[in-house]
Design a protein around this nucleic acid. Structure first.
Length: 276
DNA sequence: ATGGTGGTGCGACCA
C-alpha cells in the first residue's frame, strides 16, 4: 500500500498539479496539508472521479488538511485531541491541522494521522529565554506536546499507525543545505528539535531516515532566490511509523520531480510503501 | 537579510 503526504499550498492553485501527480504516482492514500479551503469549497469531485474517497478538515484561507484514499476511510476524526484552551488566544484551538482515519489492508488495519504542525515563526522569547505564552512559537511547542500525547495513546494500542505530514521541523543539520541559516528559526531551534526527538524516542521510526540516507534529500525549497535550482532545501515533511507499521515498511521516497513542473507547491510529496 | 515569491481572497496575513 502506497501512502503519500503532500503539502499542496492551496487546493485552488494546485488542483491541476495535484491531479497530474496522483495520476503519475498512483498512491493508495494521499495525506494533504495546506488545502487553504473550507470543506464546502474543496473540489472533491475531481478526486472522486479518480477513484478516491475524500475527507477534509478545512478552514478559510489558512491551514486545512485532507485525506484521499482508494480504500474506505473509517472512523474519521478531525482535530488534534487536547484542543480545549489550547488556542493562541487562550480559547480552544480551532486551527485545522489534524485528521485521522483507518484504512483496512489485506491483512490488517492501519491508523493514518495526517498533520500540519505550526510553523512557529517568529520566535518570541521572554528576557529569560522562555517562549512568550500565546506566541506562535509557544503554540508550536505546545502543539508538539499534544501530538506526543496522541502518539503515546496510540502506541498503547500496539497496532500499526503512522503520523505523516508537514512537521515544519528540520530534525538534524544534514536535513538542510545551509543549517547555519536556520539556527535561530522555529523549524530548527534546539527546543523544537528536542520536541521532535522526544516524539520519535517513544519508538516511532523516521521512514526516510531508515530507508534512504542519501545526502541533500529535501522536501521543501523556498520559492525565492532560485532555491530549488541550487537545491537549497530542507527536509520538513516526515513519515513517523509505529513499531508495528515500521515492520511493514518496504520503501520510502521523495517525488522531487514535482517541484520542477509548472506552478509547483513549495513542498514535494513524500511516500512510503507498506506491506499490508 | 530587510519576504526578494507565492497563496488566499480583496486587506492583510501567512509561510
Amino acid at each position: 500500500m502506497k501512502i503519500a503526504s503532500f503539502n499542496i499550498n492551496g487546493i485552488k492553485a494546485r488542483a491541476d498539479a495535484l491531479t497530474d501527480w496522483l495520476k503519475e504516482a498512483e498512491p493508495d492514500v494521499a495525506i494533504l496539508q495546506e488545502i487553504k479551503s473550507v470543506d464546502e469549497n474543496f473540489p472533491r469531485e475531481i478526486f472522486e472521479d479518480l477513484g478516491y474517497n475524500v475527507e477534509t478538515h478545512g478552514q478559510k484561507s489558512f491551514n486545512g488538511v485532507a485525506l484521499l484514499s482508494k480504500l474506505p476511510l473509517e472512523d474519521v476524526t478531525r482535530g488534534l485531541p487536547g484542543a480545549e484552551g489550547a488556542g493562541r488566544d487562550g480559547g480552544d484551538d480551532e486551527e485545522a491541522r489534524y485528521i485521522e482515519a483507518t484504512v483496512v489492508g489485506e491483512t490488517q488495519a492501519l491508523r493514518i494521522c495526517g498533520l500540519y504542525l505550526p510553523n512557529g515563526n517568529p520566535v518570541d522569547l521572554d528576557a529569560d529565554g522562555t517562549p512568550v505564552p500565546g506566541s506562535k512559537y509557544d503554540y508550536k511547542l505546545k502543539w508538539f506536546d499534544r501530538l506526543t500525547a496522541r502518539a503515546e495513546a496510540l502506541l498503547a494500542e500496539e497496532q500499526p499507525f503512522l503520523m505523516a505530514g508537514d512537521y515544519n521541523l528540520i530534525p538534524q543539520p544534514e536535513d538542510a543545505k545551509r543549517p547555519e541559516a536556520w539556527k535561530d528559526d522555529a523549524l530548527f531551534r534546539l527546543e523544537s528539535r528536542a520536541k521532535f526527538r522526544r516524539l520519535t524516542a517513544l519508538g516511532l521510526t523516521d521512514a526516510l531516515r531508515v530507508r534512504n540516507g542519501a545526502p541533500d534529500t529535501y522536501t521543501f525549497w523556498d520559492y525565492q532566490a532560485g532555491a530549488f535550482q541550487k537545491n537549497d532545501g530542507i527536509r520538513i515533511d516526515h513519515f513517523l511509523l509505529s513499531p508495528q507499521a515500521a515492520d511493514l515498511l518496504t520503501d520510502c521516497q521523495i517525488d522531487a520531480f514535482t517541484r520542477a513542473k509548472d506552478k509547483p507547491s513549495d513542498h514535494v510529496p513524500i511516500w512510503v510503501d507498506l506491506d499490508l
